[in-house]
């Protein structure tokens, strides 16, 4: 800070020499080398020790822990995903099973109902057939009976008509012949 030093530095720059004691360009001033080197060695040595022993292992630890955590989390996540996928598959399978079961049950029920209604229908039909046959038979019998009565009635009617018209007793045989003739006609 001495004014003479100042003056010397202000005046002499790269130009070495001049009358000043410290006339050299400051970075090339050899008298400053020793203290700078000594302090550089001390401080850079301290820096190296602090960094290599303390700071860098710590940062490495932090980064390692983070990497481990992220990898662990990712593993967990993928495990969870697998689990979820398995659960999804199980669900799908259960659903499909239930569906198939339900369908089978429905089919069985449908078949059973169909068979039942079939048998019912069949018995009903056969009943009906029997009844139909009975009815037909009855109708046939009644008809035949009616038909026999028809001949009698017609013969009687014919005899009455003839008697009324002619006033004579009726030849029953002639009427029977005529009846037979119309029947065959």
């Amino acid at each position: 800070m001495a004014t003479t030093d100042q003056a010397g530095h202000a005046a002499g720059t790269e130009v070495p020499g001049g009358a000043h004691a410290k006339g050299t360009f400051p970075p090339f001033d050899a008298t400053s080398f020793a203290p700078q080197l000594i302090w550089l060695a001390l401080i850079f040595g301290a820096l190296y020790l602090l960094m290599s022993r303390l700071a860098l292992p710590r940062v490495e630890g932090i980064l390692e822990a983070r990497r481990g955590r992220i990898a662990g989390d990712l593993d967990d996540a993928s495990a969870m995903q697998d689990k979820a996928r398995a659960a999804g598959a199980a669900y799908d399978k259960t659903l499909a099973d239930a569906k198939a079961k339900a369908q089978a049950m429905a089919q069985q029920m449908r078949d059973q109902l169909a068979a039942e209604s079939d048998t019912k229908r069949k018995t009903l039909e056969s009943d009906l057939n029997v009844k139909l046959a009975d009815a037909e038979r009855t109708i046939g019998a009644n008809k035949a009976q009616a038909m026999t009565h028809v001949v009698e009635i017609a013969t009687e009617a014919a005899a009455d008509i003839v008697r009324q018209i002619t006033g004579k007793p009726v030849d029953a045989q002639a009427i029977a012949r005529a009846m037979a003739a119309t029947k065959t006609a």
């Binding site: 020793a34 203290p35 302090w39 820096l47 602090l50």
Partner: peptide, 20 residues
Amino acid sequence: VDASFTNASLFMVVVLLAIT
């Protein structure tokens, strides 16, 4: 040997402290 604590030394210390 001249081992004076200079302004250069001071700022080496400052650098060291800042990095620390």
